[in-house]
Structures are given as C-alpha cells and as structure tokens.
Nucleic acid binder design. Sequence first.
DNA 1: ACTGCAACCTAACAAGCGTTAGTTCAGGCA
DNA 2: TGCCTGAACTAACGCTTGTTAGGTTGCAGT
Lengths: 189, 189
Amino acid sequence: MAVDRKQQIYTTARSLFSERGYPATTVRDIARELNMQAGSLYAHIDSKEDVLWQIVDEAAEQFLGAVEPIAEGAGAGVDKLREMVRAHVAVVAAGSNNAAIFLHEWKFLSEERRESVAERRNRYEGLYRRVIEEGIRRGEFAPTDPKMAALLVLSVMNWMPQWYNPTGPLSATQIADGFIEIILKGLEA
Amino acid sequence: MAVDRKQQIYTTARSLFSERGYPATTVRDIARELNMQAGSLYAHIDSKEDVLWQIVDEAAEQFLGAVEPIAEGAGAGVDKLREMVRAHVAVVAAGSNNAAIFLHEWKFLSEERRESVAERRNRYEGLYRRVIEEGIRRGEFAPTDPKMAALLVLSVMNWMPQWYNPTGPLSATQIADGFIEIILKGLEA
DNA sequence: ACTGCAACCTAACAAGCGTTAGTTCAGGCA
DNA sequence: TGCCTGAACTAACGCTTGTTAGGTTGCAGT
C-alpha cells in the first residue's frame, strides 16, 4: 500500500490540468480526488505552479529526447520524418495528459519558466523544418515551403491530444502511420 | 464618439479570453482595459458566462455558415475540399480570436450550451468526412480511411489560431493554398 | 517504552472572484 | 424648469482561491 503520495498527486494533477486547464483546477480539486485536505498537499509539493512546471518540463524533455536523436541521425529524409512522427505519437500515447498540458498550460508559468519552454519548443519545431529542408535539397521532397510543411506536420501532431483516446480502437502506431502516409505522399517529389 | 460600449466589451473579452483563457480572465481585467469599474460592465452584460456564450455561438455559426453551403453544393470533391479550407481559413483570419475561443473555451459553458456547441462541431466535422468519402467513391481520392483524412485536414485548421498572426507576411489565402496543395496531393488517387 | 518522523488534519489568512445595490451625474425631452 | 434615462461610480456581499501554522496520529527503529 501507500504508493508514493507525491506521484499520486502528480498523476491527479496531470489528469485535472489536462481536462479543465490549470487555472480552473484548484488545489482543493486535486486533494478531493485523493481523499485528503487541501493543506495536506503542501507536505509533498511546494506550490501549485511548481507542479505545473514539473509536468511541463518533463513533457518537453520527453518530446526532445525521443525525436532529436532521430532528426540528427543518418538516413533518408523520408525515413527520418516517418520515425520522428512515430516517436512523437508514441510519447503522446504514453502520457497524453502530459502532452495536452505541455501544449496549452505553459502560458501560466512564470516568465523565466515560460522562456525555457519556448526555447525548447522552437528547437523542437526546428528539427522538423530542418529534416524537410534537407529532404528538399536532396530531391526527396517536392520544393514546397519547408516552414509550411513543418507546420502541417506539427499541427496534426499537436491537435492529437484533443481527440486521442487511449482506449479507442486505433493504436498509436496505426494513427501515426495513417497520418504520415498521407503527409509523405503530399510532400514527395 | 461613444461607440457602442457593449461591442467594446465583447471585443475586449474576445481578446483576453483568447489570450489567457476564460477562467484566467476576470471581469476586472476586462473593465480595466476599458477604463471602467468592474460593476459597470453589468449595465451592458448579464454575466461573464453569457459573454463567452455569445462569442462561442457566433463563431460556430460563422464556420458552419461559411463551409456548409460549399460542402453540400455541386462540384468535384477536390474543388469542394479546397474551397472549404479556404472558407475556413478566411473565417479564422477575419476574427482569429473567435476561433481560438470557440476551440478551447467551450468547456467552461453550462451543460446545455456545451451540448449545443458539440452538436454543431460534430456536424461541421461531418462535412469534411462526407466530402472525402464521396471523393473516394468517385475515384478522385485514393482509398484511405476518410476519418483519418478528415482529422488531418481539421487538425491543420484547428491549430492555426495558435500561430496565425494577422500582421504576418502570409495572407490567409496563401496559407490555405499552401496547406491544401500538400493535403490534396497526399489524398489524390 | 520512547523518540522521531512523515502524513495528515483543522483552522485560518489575505487576496481575489463574480455579482448586486444604491448613488451620482450629465443630456435629452416635456 | 423638472423629469427621465443611461452610464458610470463606490462599496459591499458571500464565496473561493493558494498557502501557512500548529496540532494530532500512527508507525519504524532503538
């Protein structure tokens, strides 16, 4: 029994933050879900914003950690892009709450923390743009605007937490492959 | 002088709701922006939620009103899909604040209002799915899962309010055409 | 048996929330 | 002139917010 209470608090926070958003979630909501009192939370956490920060920070690391090695590795652009999308979708599927919070709730962090998130998000988006640019230069992809192409890929992935249901009929890999098939055909030379 | 104060309140609310979200925007924030007292707002509005409702309701009508006639009209699926995306993007561009609020803040409406939004959103998504299904049946599009294809199109459009900048270098039509070019190539038979 | 400690509780805090009531004041109209 | 209307104000309401302080409980190790 008595699994690490801190972890339980974070799990509950992830669920509620992603469902209602950070400002609409109160520490009393989180406490109620765990059958405890609001004040008792503070034996385990420092502040509500700290909880948000840890969740967002972790998610940022997960996405970069999964996709950066692929983007900077060797191989054809087509294959790299496919693997990047697969890796991204796998991260979303592994913890879809994290992804939704990462995408929408970072606004409520303090200035410096927000900047740390923005920096990593820019780096992340750059990975996709660069792989597509490289693919165009090599003649793998048709000469389209790489910024728009990257934005298209990222849009599809970023919208995913809004509808993805872990208990739904489609596995994460099926979803990734379904999307990337259409996208790669749309981009190919 | 003295433009309709009610309109000013709605314009300010649109701006703040889309920027910080509904729960993180206080009626005092709105009032401050208009150099007035929070209580004074209530000479013009009934409640904070009513303001949100009117904005969301209006946006729903704008999207359906612009896209439904095209989807149910005659013509090739390829042309219809292109025009639908153009029309959607035009609505976003005409009032990008509305779109962001419509997509993310409907959760904070009352049960019945939420349902009214959900019903129209389902109808809206169905328009895209049906045009794609029709296109596949006619042999215009390759036989892909129409649900995934529609989701791809909608994802790209729904993510747009997150990055679209009215004063940016790209016009709404350029954006729409850039995306739809890639997507149509990805779908074609 | 005693101590130490983590986990939890109750109670309260200052601040902020949406909203209401009562009032003031200027402008248009009889 | 006197009255009405609309828009604004001030002040407060009851409630909720994140957070803190201090006390209680029960269990692990000596």
